[in-house]
Write a protein that binds this DNA or RNA. Sequence first.
DNA 1: ACCTGAACACCGTTCAAGT
DNA 2: ACCTGAACACCGTTCAAGT
Lengths: 208, 208
Amino acid sequence: MSGSPRHSRDDVSEMALRLLDEYGLPDLTMRHIAAALEVRASALYWHFPNKQALLASVSARILRPMEDVRVEDMTVSETVRRLGARLRECLLAYRDAAELVSSSLALGLVDSPVQPQLMAVTRRDGVPDSLSRVAAEAVMHFVVGYTFHEQQRLSADSFGLLPETTSSLNPEHANARPADGGDFEEALKMIADGLEVSARQHTETSAG
Amino acid sequence: MSGSPRHSRDDVSEMALRLLDEYGLPDLTMRHIAAALEVRASALYWHFPNKQALLASVSARILRPMEDVRVEDMTVSETVRRLGARLRECLLAYRDAAELVSSSLALGLVDSPVQPQLMAVTRRDGVPDSLSRVAAEAVMHFVVGYTFHEQQRLSADSFGLLPETTSSLNPEHANARPADGGDFEEALKMIADGLEVSARQHTETSAG
DNA sequence: ACCTGAACACCGTTCAAGT
DNA sequence: ACCTGAACACCGTTCAAGT
């Protein structure tokens, strides 16, 4: 059929995402990605300057569904909670996605997945951009960190590791026990409430 | 002088922390740590089962100053802000410390650096443990993620990278500009305020 | 108890050369 | 425009053997 199966940038990152989900981040090597595309590792350097850039394009792909969240009719608090919950869903959709996105975000190689939509709503409601940016950072870092930790526990469990540690039979370490799914939403609510308090303080100060 | 310079576990992690600060995480290899101790890489496997365990002991060392924070006389809100600020200081004290601690925390190889002291104060004030744990997670993940990003920007700047991107001359990307130091405390305040709102809601509900 | 020596099975990246 | 081939300079980890 196809005599010369040459690839696009998008082909590469699409395949990389598939391999990430199937084999995990430690096995997402340039050689494995290349092999899956029936190509040598050196060929990938025509499409990307280095591995970090390739991983950033995979991160952007993972975060793409964030764009579909419609926030027009939401309150500020609803928007914070909705964007946070959706971000967690995006990260849980692929194996090791939270770890990958965490480092791409820290390196500044992908845009904030929360800021644009949150800012649209806060501007509509007269909340200062500075507060909105801060809240977007708080939500983003909390969700990515929380889900990173959560995702590690999931794959540790599936590997059969931590058999007695996770069963929380040790009252000595009850304080250290991981939070469950409902705690995630509780934390988002805290940040949302905190943003509303700050916004209220701002309008009182500038109006009164 | 010393004929047989054999090492302890603590010697190894102390040297590893020095090398981390001097050369950064990518160069913190088993071979480099061993060489600095005048030993072969394989010798490290007598002290630690693998590299991740060694890195976890370095993380614990970085977080040790968290224990010195005295919270007895603080309000809940002050405690959140103080512990968050101190955590950031701990991470900024060594090169790439935030990235290292981020992964150790996600892997569950080090304890929460926020929870014990926050819980002491919230218990004193009758705030439910569940809320306290959630807030501790929010603070921890936010601070580590924020500082990870911040620290990457610092070393990118010192490397002379991102010369025009960081000078924020591009109005198109003004929304994406990184938050400054004051924004960090603003975000901690949001989480602290959110915790107080939740605590208030709880006591109202349970008291009638 | 603590370490060496040597090997195993890999990495990311570069670059001249091919088509 | 897109890729190969071959090399460079490394990795983490294991394990028999030494002292």
